[in-house]
Amino acid sequence: MNKVLIVDDSATMRKIITRVLRQAEIPCASVVEAGNGVEGMARLASDPDIDLILSDINMPEMNGVDFVKAVRATRAKESLPMIMVTTEGGEAMMNNALALGANGYVTKPFTPESIRAALEAYLG
């Protein structure tokens, strides 16, 4: 079982992702949420059991690219899988996120199948 952190400034999108994780039959013990990268870092600091992060890119305060950088700069979290879930599927943006340490990405709108494909390698 896994604990997934969803980082997105839209409460609607956090609910949609949570629902799609269930539809995709991803074996999640629990889902925890954060509204931007700053909140995501705080959640990671207070919850050592998080197994995977799904993060938006275009967010206020700390965007997804800076969030990837911040997570990877934290030694204890440098190997934590991070999947970007974004409306912006542009090659340059994605290559930047991947170069900084993201493990993959899913473009919105997504399906249970595309979420499952992106997460399969990382969840037990």
């Binding site: 275009n58 974004t86 409306t87 912006e88 599927g89 542009g90 473009t107 919105k108 709108p109």
Partner: peptide, 8 residues
Amino acid sequence: MVTGHVKT
């Protein structure tokens, strides 16, 4: 989502 699709 719609604007992101147009942008991409």
